[in-house]
Simulated scan of single mutants.
Amino acid sequence: MGELKSEVGVRESERELLFETYKLHTELAERVASLREDVNKLYVSMTSGVIAASVLLQKLVQDGEATWVLPVLGVTVTVSWMSSLHSVTGRLSGKHHALVELESKLGINFFTREREEFERGRFLKRKHTALVLPGTFFLVCVGWLVVMIL
């Protein structure tokens, strides 16, 4: 006996498999979003360490010979931070695209509707706002290094 077809033209067994895949991708997308927060926590801790080390080094070293290391370290940390955020954001974007594709096959539209509402609200994209803090720290460190050189 043939399987029943749903309203979007997918057989019921295929629909169940697609729905399980959809649930898995939703969970994986949540994990990637959580990973982004973990990346931020790690790098905020690292930049706090650079700031603390700079204060300590200023008090311990009178001639300023070794202090150039800290802005270079700060630049390195922030470039790594921005690269990590770019990677995680790209993975999350890929997960959302896969979810939207699965939604079209399942006849549901949670992520599609969320994206439409987001775009209608003209919010800044998360990948851009996520770079504000590391970008600011990067500019501070570059400025710090320039001041030390001049």
Rank of each mutant, 00 (worst) to 15 (best):
L28H: 11
A29F: 04
A29P: 01
E30V: 04
E30T: 08
V32E: 10
V32N: 03
A33T: 13
S34G: 15
L35G: 02
L35S: 08
E37T: 07
D38S: 15
K41E: 15
K41P: 00
M46V: 13
S48H: 06
G49C: 10
I51K: 06
I51D: 03
A52Q: 13
A53D: 05
A53E: 01
V55S: 14
L57H: 07
Q58M: 04
Q58K: 14
L60V: 12
Q62L: 11
Q62P: 01
G64Q: 12
E65T: 09
A66M: 10
V69K: 11
L70M: 03
P71C: 01
P71N: 08
P71W: 03
V72G: 07
G74W: 07
V75P: 00
V75C: 10
V75M: 14
V75S: 00
V77F: 11
T78M: 15
S80V: 13
W81T: 08
W81M: 09
M82R: 11
M82L: 04
S84A: 15
L85C: 03
H86P: 00
S87E: 08
V88H: 01
T89F: 01
G90M: 04
L92S: 10
L92H: 06
S93A: 07
G94M: 02
K95A: 05
H96W: 08
H97P: 00
A98Y: 01
L99A: 03
L99M: 05
L99C: 06
V100T: 07
V100P: 01
V100A: 06
E101H: 02
E101F: 04
E101N: 12
K105T: 04
G107W: 06
G107N: 06
I108N: 02
F110W: 10
T112Q: 14
R113W: 05
R113P: 00
E114Y: 09
E116H: 05
E117W: 04
E117N: 13
R120N: 11
R120E: 15
G121W: 04
R122S: 12
R122M: 08
F123L: 08
F123A: 02
L124Q: 03
L124W: 10
R126N: 02
R126Y: 03
K127D: 11
H128K: 02
H128M: 08
T129Q: 13
A130T: 00
L133V: 14
L133S: 12
L133I: 09
P134S: 05
F137K: 06
